[in-house]
Design a protein around this nucleic acid. Structure first.
Lengths: 204, 204, 204, 204
DNA sequence: GACTAAGCGAGACGGTACGTCGCGTCTTAAA
DNA sequence: TTTAAGACGCGACGTACCGTCTCGCTTAGTC
């Protein structure tokens, strides 16, 4: 006989409740003011249960942030236009950080990520590297199309596109908007343009 | 008769002792594990005295970090070579963050800077803006020499040069070295090269 | 099968440890020099735990003092002799204040009791009133026996017997001894003697 | 030529300002909440100056209280009526403690007086003993008039009259009013009435 | 009538304890 | 057996006042 439609286990259910509560709380304040006690209260779960699943509140916060962040990564579809593709990539990040609760959350979380090896490793594995891998086919198609130099370094492209975004989020306070994405993509396209590229007009 | 060489006031002396102790402690751990109590103990100063001069440990930490950071800013001397000049600018930052205690300190401090308006404002006024102002004459000379386009945006140059550095420091974990500075300067020079620049060989 | 002899709960155990430590410390100094931090250290309990059970050190001190004071109240047994009964009452107080650590403790505590309504209320409810109630049957028997006037005011008797004792403890510094109790009881017996009492010799 | 009317020295003037400010502050709160800093601010005097004249705030507070208390002692005039005389004595204390700021001040001060030998000594010398001396002629006249027994103990009379007053002020919280003074004087008169006194009606 | 040293205001300092917060652990009782 | 509920040990926080210590400026009193 068929099993009922997979009611999640008790453990799964409380895990979910915890993550939901965490995301709610992150949306209300920033990660710095997140409190395990508040998460427990909000989710109706005992503090003990939280610690059963996460080492501490930072790992929990990182997990919660990822839930909102990961699904927003743009898929590396081929739309036949390198600029458009890079813009899709860059702008998805700009919007996540600039227009959702993920921005403030990352602001509060970043010190923990930067200073704790486990968190840093986790973040790189789940975010930095996937995003780099995702960028790769786009860059490769750009090279194939003659929009980028054959020796274009994906890593550097990645850093030139996202570094300034985080710099604004964390330090300079500049606006995270479409203009930024555009400028960054332009800069990268110019920077890695083939040496012998026809002197076509460079700006949109 | 000559005056004695101006012994600093008591207030100045304890302020200095506090800042020194803070810098020592930052050098030993990161900013996250900095403790007002430890600063007091190390400096031989009462906790109260620390709170008399700084709102909280983060403002203290920021001040202490600046002491090490600000004097390291390269002076915008004219050496007649735009690449060299931009490299001086970029590399000074890379070295401060990559080879001194300022790197770890900033890692622990950044969440506070990013989330607290007063700290953010202070940081921008004392670091971001001066650095941008400092970059301006270099960029202007680059334009004058025909190495950069006349419409080159100093702000964007600033962000393209430093954003990736912080991205490595905080998230991607990539190396902060001479190679990075070089790549960034190359990218910027290519990106903002005049449209009609002679097709001289682009790399060193 | 028999249950084990009810090991007290953790909460009870730490409460007890706190009270014990407090009583020890009160015995060593007076209530004014009592420190929550010292109580915590002595009892091996966290400061927080103390504040979980008592608003502040004064409520704790009062509780601790009561532990030593309350069980010493003499029971209002009928021994057939009004003088003896009143003496028992008075002397129990004189001895508690004069010969145990309760005296010094009360000296340090009294300002708080006198100035803080909650403490005052607590003290009256737990000490003043019970003691007055306790005195009542003795006075009533005294009236029945013809040793006291029928309109003898228990409250006033109470105050005449104890007021001078506290006055010595707190202000005049006179000795708290058997002689005092005797004098006070004599005074009260004379004061409230029936108008028509036979002119029996008035002193012992 | 005549000297101007003796302008007090600077030291005297600031001493006075300090005492005035202290009395004002005592009138606003109780002695427990008195702070040296507030006294300095209110009197426009430096903290140092306060400590030049008083060991600590308690000695200052005691001095300030005495200023209000001492002049209120009733003079032991002979009005030809023992009851009236004792009532004058008792009621002056009841009114000082019950109707002026001296009551609350004493409540906050008493623990210091009781626990610190210097303060206790000072208080006894300036208040307890003078008051006892003052009571003496009244008692003696009472004996001479046949209202009191020849062996009447002034000290005990003193304690029976004032002990209950302080007991109410500090612990029982009963009213400090004319009724109390009356009851106490009655009790004392009855208590120390000559053995062979005519059985005159005992109450007013 | 100017000079000088004591006394003063202002206010920072070292210090003790306060009462609070949030962490991560441990206990207890119920489901 | 796993969980919710919640007390606990701990470490640091930022605050309040204490009593002390400079530091110039005033202010009497002395030459």
């Amino acid at each position: 006989m068929e099993k009922a439609p997979e009611r999640p286990s008790r453990a799964e259910r409380s895990k979910q409740a915890i993550l939901d509560a965490t995301r709610e709380l992150l949306a209300e304040g920033d990660a710095r003011s997140l409190t395990v006690e508040a998460v427990a209260a909000r989710s109706g779960v005992a503090k003990t249960t939280i610690y059963r699943h996460w080492r501490d509140k930072w790992e929990l916060a990182l997990d919660a942030v990822m839930i909102d962040m990961l699904p927003r990564f743009a898929a590396p579809d081929d739309v036949g236009d390198t600029r458009k593709e890079l813009l899709t990539f860059t702008d998805s990040v700009v919007r996540i950080l600039g227009a959702t609760q993920t921005g403030p959350a990352m602001q509060g979380l970043i010190s923990e990520i930067a200073t704790r090896p486990e968190l840093a490793k986790d973040y790189r594995k789940r975010v930095v590297e996937p995003r780099r891998e995702q960028l790769k086919p786009w860059v490769e198609r750009g090279i194939a199309r003659g929009d980028l130099r054959p020796d274009t370094d994906v890593r550097l492209v990645h850093e030139l596109l996202l570094g300034p975004v985080f710099y604004r989020l964390l330090l300079s306070g500049g606006p995270l908007d479409r203009k930024l994405s555009n400028s960054l993509v332009d800069a990268v396209l110019d920077s890695f343009a083939p040496v012998d590229s026809a002197k076509k007009p460079k700006r949109r």
